[in-house]
């Protein structure tokens, strides 16, 4: 417990692990807060607590995820993220080597993203009172002038773009859970999307809606848009990119990729006359190369998402209710 006591051991932990991997001037002054100047304009802030099992999974770990997830949330307003904070809750008994691995990965993700972690906190809880490690991160950013992006801004006729294949993250996590190990090449898509978004809003500033379909997946995000904007949404199942490996795993487990979490994808609603330009740009970006137009916003069936199924039938795509549970039969 001594690492969380606030004494010498705490400060050793901070210096040897956190300062080492998060190294930046503002953090390493070791004050109780970080201060910085702000440019004029609108700011955007988002916070997210990350709890995940297993802590390390194919394609990422809780450290990099805690950077990507929060950066994505803040940048879905079109904002350019500036700084991050990080709070750690560590369970007694967590191996220092594992902590170091996670913090190192988190530091790397922050460096890659170009967004420094400038303040933080660590607490240690007794064994059995946590799940190894919980990480809360907050990010703030600045929204470029002229943007007005929000879930309530969808307009009839808007086209819907998804930036790549769905279901990778959730399926990768499931494949590495203790009671469900299966051999697969599926990797989490965990990635920070703000560079892609910066390019997108520069070319097409009048993007209407932008959101990352994390928990609840694509289906949930589309339902949120349709309710917030009071419009109908039509999508075409065959246009939605799903990797064969993800499809197969879902088939096996009786799950629907439409509801599975993504951590490196975005959904974008854009006026029809701008969609080709935007799609081309997205496809030229590493994180958007598999972008596809998957449907459009319609005046009919307000607050409802419908899908033309691969078979040619039509059905509703509703919110996910509860957790997806594997079927028996």
């Amino acid at each position: 417990m001594s690492h969380g006591g606030g004494g010498k051991a705490s400060s050793q932990l901070i210096e040897q692990i956190f300062f080492k991997y998060f190294a930046n001037e503002m953090l390493c002054t070791a004050d109780d807060q970080a201060s910085f100047d702000i440019p004029a304009g609108r700011m955007s802030i988002s916070t997210d607590s990350h709890v995940i099992s297993p802590l390390i999974f194919p394609g990422g770990d809780i450290g990099s995820l805690s950077v990507h997830g929060t950066l994505n949330d803040v940048s879905m307003s079109g904002a350019k993220p500036l700084y991050m904070s990080a709070g750690f809750i560590l369970e007694e008994g967590l191996k220092l080597s594992l902590l170091e691995k996670i913090v190192k990965s988190m530091g790397q993700a922050s460096v890659d993203a170009g967004v420094p972690i400038i303040t933080g906190d660590t607490k240690v809880v007794e064994k059995g009172h946590g799940d190894g490690i919980f990480i809360n991160t907050t990010a703030i950013g600045i929204i470029p002038e002229g943007l007005d992006i929000g879930g309530d801004k969808a307009q009839i006729g808007d086209k819907i773009i998804i930036s790549g294949s769905i279901g990778d993250h959730g399926t990768a996590i499931m494949s590495s859970r203790e009671n469900l190990e299966f051999d697969t090449t599926i990797k989490s898509d965990s990635a920070a999307l703000h560079h892609l978004i910066a390019d997108m809003v520069q070319v097409v500033p009048d993007i209407h809606c932008l959101r990352d379909p994390t928990r609840g997946g694509l289906a949930t995000t589309l339902n949120e848009f349709s309710r917030q904007s009071n419009v109908g949404i039509d999508i075409i199942e065959q246009k939605i990119p799903v990797k064969t490996s993800v499809k197969s795993a879902c088939e096996l487990l009786g799950l629907d990729p439409m509801y599975i979490a993504n951590e490196g994808k975005l959904i974008c609603l854009v006026p029809a006359n701008k969609v080709d330009e935007l799609l081309k740009l997205m496809q030229s970006h590493k994180l958007g190369k598999d972008s596809k137009i998957i449907g459009e916003v319609v005046a009919e069936h307000k607050k409802m998402v419908t899908m033309q199924t691969q078979l040619g039938g039509r059905r509703i795509v509703d919110y996910l209710t509860g957790d997806q549970l594997p079927r028996i039969c």
């Binding site: 059905r315 509703i316 209710t321 509860g322 028996i328």
Partner: peptide
Amino acid sequence: PENPMGACMVSSEGACAAHYSYGGL
């Protein structure tokens, strides 16, 4: 499906849950 009263609302194979999730049209 979040708060099922009867079992048919539980499993995605149940008639009520299938109707609820997909059958709105």
